[in-house]
Design a binder for these strands. Structure first.
Lengths: 180, 180
DNA sequence: TTTCGCATGTAAACAGTTACATGATTAC
DNA sequence: GTAATCATGTAACTGTTTACATGCGAAA
């Protein structure tokens, strides 16, 4: 998915500015499926406007910088539908954490323990946020995707918690007592 | 992690050619944590050689193209350790599938069903491969990372299986006009 | 006989992130 | 007074993918 389609999708749920689109990929339901930066969003919005897929209404705000709010056009809805109908590309995943774990035998066990603990804390924080934080963007897929995210993060967290000690023991080499 | 570090890591487990490194990121234990292409691997190997982090021994092969086998140097091990010791960057995940599901209300439910079924099949195939196929690269982290991959994929698969029908019902319930 | 696997490499095209540039308001 | 939030945008840099270029051997 290119940034243009990502923006088009968000705008299809309601008029939004570049700034708000970025937030949707940081805070709202989209944060664990894609991410973008201003450097790609703003040029994408310009291109979408030129192609007639969105229209921009400038909004002067008192006590705030001007805001450019983009709304989707009929042509835009068509383009979005077309993009969503294409066979999806494979998921792209890259994890420094997992790569480091793969080579954990090269690091001092204390460092490995610290990394795992940080990761456990990260999952706990994220799950808390996902559970509590309102599913604000309103699309039916939102809950489905959100639920899948929670399921996956939970199992990752469980795995780390339950395998942490055994892994660390194994790395320390010696056959100390293994908790059963 | 840049491609140089990825290559260095693989080579640290045993001498390898560019071709073999690529395979490690496709088939072996690394396939679900990072990926690379020849276009980034070969230049990285050249750079690593110039920096003295690996050494290259050319191997003429009968009935096969020549092979360049790279081995890690002491300096290379140092550089790898340093790279692994840096605080890991956040995981980068991007999923066309999840993005499309987020906007599932725009598509005919039959298309959504097909996508979910394909995804279920994909997880099943991958899990079968991961369960059966030997974890051939031998590092202690291998089993740990592999196990986490299996846990996460399994929960994703379970989620899709158990929520598929309810999601589809929900979609066709409210958007009958879209579905012909 | 066509495709697949082995095997290396380059160049151009494309995409994405980071840093820069600007600046007001509000909350601590 | 300092940081955070709001708000837009460009340019340089970095990194990745794709296509190209080459070519043999083995299996289907």
């Amino acid at each position: 998915m290119d940034t243009k389609t990502l923006c088009l999708g968000v705008i299809s749920l309601g008029a939004a500015s570049g700034y708000e689109i970025k937030k949707a990929f940081e805070e709202d339901g989209l944060n664990h499926i894609y991410h973008t930066s201003y450097g790609s969003i703003y040029p994408a919005l310009t291109a979408l406007t030129e192609e007639g897929l969105v229209i921009c209404s400038e909004m002067a705000q008192a006590k705030r910088p001007d805001k450019k709010v983009y709304s989707i056009t009929e042509a835009g809805r068509g383009a979005l539908l077309e993009a969503l109908s294409a066979p999806p590309a494979e998921d792209k995943f890259r994890s420094d954490f997992l790569f480091i774990m793969f080579f954990a035998h090269l690091l001092p066990p204390s460092s490995v323990a610290k990394l795992i603990d940080q990761r456990i804390a990260w999952y706990e924080q994220n799950l808390a946020k996902m559970g509590a934080g309102g599913d604000c963007i309103c699309s039916k897929g939102d809950a489905f995707v959100h639920g899948m995210g929670v399921a996956v993060y939970s199992s990752a967290l469980e795995y780390l918690k339950s395998h942490r000690q055994a892994f660390l023991d194994q790395l320390s080499g010696a056959s100390r007592l293994v908790a059963e």
